[in-house]
Each structure stands twice: as C-alpha cells, then as structure tokens.
C-alpha cells in the first residue's frame, strides 16, 4: 500500500512541473508585452514600464525567469497582487475555505442524492421512476448553471423570499473567522441565528453547483449498477438466499461504487469550473470569484498563481480519489 501511494506521488511530479510551465508561460509565450497587457487600456509611462519590468523580472532571459519562479514557488512565494499589493498565497488561503465549504456541500449533496437515485433507477429499470429520474438527469447535465442559479434566485429569493440573494452570511452578524468555514465559525460564535443565516446562504449556491455532478453521478451509478447486477456473483448472492436488500446494498453496490468513485473524483474539476459561475452569481467570496475578478482586473500574478494553485489542488484531489479507488478495489490493492 505504501509503495502504491509512493508510486502515485512520484508520477505526479512531472505533471506538477508541467502545470508550473503552463501557468508560467501563459502570459509570456503569447505575443505582446505583458506589462502593457497588465496595464490595460490606461497604458504606462516608460519609467513605470521599466520599473514594473524589473520588479516582475521580465528583463531577464525566459529560462532564468522560470527557474526563479520555481524557486520562489518552493518557498511559498507566489508573488503579490497588483491591485491589493498583498501576497497571492495569503489571499488564496483566506478565500479558499469559502470555496471548499461550498464545493464540499455540493458534492455531498450530489452524492447523497445521485447514488440512491441511480441505484433505484437501475433496480426499477424501465419504470416511471427510472424514466423520470433519467430524463431529469439529462436535463441537469445539459443545464446552463449560471441561468439555473438566476432562476432559483427569482423563485426562492424573489417570489417566495425564503433565501438570501448573495453572500455567505447576513451583514447583521460579525465575528472573526477562525476556521474560515462559515458553518463552523457561526456555530462557535455563539451569536443567535448566525448559524441559520449561514445555512440559508449556502443552500441555493450549493444546489446550483451540485446540479451537474448530481446528474452525472446518477447516470453513472445507474449504468454501473445495471452492469453489476448481471454478474455471476450477484446471482450467487441470490442463490445463497440473501435478502434482496443485502444483494443490492452489499454485493452489487460495493462493486458498482468502484467506477462511481472515479466519477465523483472527476467531478472536482467540474466543480471548480462551476464554482467560477456559481460564486459570480451569488457573490460568494471564494476562489472562483477571485479568479474572475482578477482576470477582469488583469491582475496577472493572481491569475497565474491562482491557475497553478487550482490545478495543483485538482491534481491532489485526483490522487486522493486514486487512493480511495485502491482501497475499495481489492484487485488493485493486492497487485
């Protein structure tokens, strides 16, 4: 098992280096002066141009710049934002919990609903439940989530007035964020109603973010279950006189989950892309909104490092999924 993890980790190194090259090269390989690109339509004076160039190290050879970039990276230095002047890593770490909170909530929601729906649709193949849920799944899979979010706001916030429109918590409450996770912080703050407020702010964004993963997980679970239910060992379980619940819930499900876990893992990337849209719609102060804001402000160190951090994070999550896959699939673990 240790060797399995180590070999996976070793395999990640070239990928991570590749990611750094892409993140580094983005602005520089493309035509145009990066300093002018950053300055945008306002333009800069020649003195300011030289100053910025030197500050960002653009006056040195490209390869040198890359190795300096890499060196700083290993020391945790990802540069400073051009707009706020603060270290990028610090900003990332402050905003990161908001995105994790949203993403975790969404993926848990998607899994908790998607897996049972898929299982049930497979068992009752061809029934009205199967047809309705799989049609719904295809609609969810085809959903422009930025529109879906707006619709939900119109309905639940506008017409019913049940949920707030934006943000993580009502402005009435203020407490220092100790963990960065609003649900935890609001609970430990001891302020009355803070937790409820945090939950009500989280519901709509996580429903929106969960939509596509939910659809994918439900579809994948259904087809995996259908395949597994035709296997000989499921017939054996029945022949052993095991109750239907156990045949499906233990013997079939355990094997069907192997591809489903991979699918859930692959949704992390989808979730990150979805977070950009969801956070924009709901003004959720997380990584996605930070990236889109930085892009429109041409805050290029943030874009570069944000890209790197997000890709690195997706890579790590995929590693975790690979390891889980090894855990639940004895055939991999043994070899």
């Amino acid at each position: 098992m240790v060797r399995f993890i180590l070999s996976k980790l070793l395999f990640l190194i070239p990928t991570f280096l590749g990611i750094t090259i892409i993140a580094f090269g983005f602005v520089r390989i493309l035509p145009g002066d990066p300093v002018l690109l950053m300055a945008g339509e306002r333009g800069v004076s020649p003195e300011r141009h030289a100053e910025l160039s030197a500050q960002l190290g653009f006056d040195r050879p490209l390869v040198m710049q890359y190795f300096e970039f890499l060196g700083r990276l290993f020391h945790g230095d990802l540069g400073n934002s051009l707009v706020t002047k603060k270290p990028v890593l610090g900003e990332f770490l402050t905003l990161f919990p908001a995105t994790v909170e949203l993403g975790l909530f969404a993926i848990v929601l998607a899994t908790l609903i998607g897996v049972p729906v898929g299982v049930f649709a497979a068992i009752k193949r061809g029934s009205w439940f199967d047809q309705v849920s799989m049609t719904a799944a295809l609609v969810g899979f085809s959903m422009p989530i930025f529109w879906w979010g707006l619709l939900l706001i119109i309905f639940f916030s506008g017409i019913l007035g049940w949920t707030p429109v934006s943000g993580r918590i009502s402005l009435m409450y203020y407490f220092p964020d100790s963990t960065g996770f609003m649900l935890i912080d609001s609970l430990t703050s001891g302020q009355k109603g803070a937790f409820t407020s945090a939950v009500s702010h989280l519901i709509l964004p996580s429903v929106v973010l969960a939509t596509i993963p939910l659809a994918v997980i439900a579809r994948q679970t259904r087809s995996a279950m259908l395949e597994v239910m035709g296997e000989d060992y499921v017939r054996t379980a029945r022949a052993k006189g095991m109750p239907q619940r156990r045949v499906i819930g233990v013997h079939a499900l355990r094997n069907a989950m192997i591809p489903v876990v991979t699918t859930i893992g692959l949704q992390i990337g989808v979730l990150m892309a979805g977070a950009i849209l969801t956070e924009t719609i709901f003004s959720w102060p997380g990584i996605g909104k930070w990236m889109i804001d930085s892009i429109s402000r041409r805050d290029y160190p943030v874009v570069q490092s944000g890209l790197l951090l997000i890709a690195g994070m997706v890579m790590l999550v995929n590693l975790l999924v690979d390891l889980t896959y090894g855990l639940i699939n004895p055939r991999i673990r043994a070899s």
Binding site: T15, G18, I19, I22, F26, V27, L30, L37, G269, V270, M272, A273, G274, I276, L277, M291, I292, I295, R298, V303, L307, I310, A311, V314, M315
Partner: peptide, 20 residues
C-alpha cells in the same frame, strides 16, 4: 501535454486563455 491540459478545469483554462 494533453494530460496537462486535461489537468486544468476546462472552463477555467478557457477563461484564462481568453483573458490573455
């Protein structure tokens, strides 16, 4: 190189590309 491109969330990569 293909694996690398796939390592990024697609919409994010497209966004950054457009930004550049």
């Amino acid at each position: 190189v293909m694996d690398l491109i796939l390592a990024f969330p697609s919409l994010l990569l497209a966004l950054v590309l457009v930004a550049v």
